[in-house]
Amino acid sequence: MNLPAQGPVIPDFGNTSGCKANETFCWDWFADHWDRFAAELVQHVWVSAIAIVIGLAIALPAALLAYRLPRFETPAVVFSTILYTVPVLGFFLLMIPVTGIGLLTIEIALVGYTLLLLFRNTVTGLRSVPPEVRAAALGMGLTPGQILVRITFPLALPAVMAGLRVVTVTTISLATLAAYIAPYGLGQSILFYIGNTFISGLISAGVLAILLALVADALIVGLTKLVTPWARARRGGA
């Protein structure tokens, strides 16, 4: 894609096309630029997925620790709440002197935002397992490790998945801001076209980000049903 030196009315498309400068959305332009948007979409998925997986890898063990050692819970909640309240863009920009301009900075900030919800939901889920269920498992001769893996954690899964659902859409949303730091994700197009009078670029990037979030949300809902089949059975198949 070659950028014209003096931004024309319609970016990167020339004025001979069927698109008009004041059009809300021009399909021809979008089709012509699909490669750019597709590449950013794929990046966006990766940037978000990496953050969510690392967030799970930190938050789940931390929640197990807090479940076993309750005095660990308050500091963990305070720490993750502060992380959660920092404006993400400020977080990104403040990390640059430490971790440089690039994916590392983006991921550290995005992971920071996943921790609170994943941690809090997992601890809540683990705590909500009735003691008599664990007592029954103990009575059947299960070891503490088996009780955790086969009884407690599966019963905590609905709460974990509810947290994961919110975290997934939040991460996809925040990842649009990553483009302020380094060229990753759909935020690139949003920032690139934001000052332009031809608005198809903005609409395309915005709608794609929204669609991505909605699809991811639906996927997590499907995944939740898949990993907690008993929840559906209990609701009478509804």
């Binding site: 809300t24 959305f25 919110v166 859409v169 996809i172 949303s173 925040l174 649009t176 801001l177 759909l186 935020g187 949003i190 076209y193 934001i194 608005i199 198809s200 903005l202 609409i203 990037a205 915005g206 709608v207 980000a209 929204i210 979030a213 909605l214 991811a216 949300d217």
Partner: peptide, 15 residues
């Protein structure tokens, strides 16, 4: 809840 804020701003600028 799933709508990215920056995407709403971007589309809003257009509309």
């Amino acid at each position: 809840r799933a709508l990215p804020t920056l995407a709403i701003i971007a589309i809003g600028i257009g509309l």
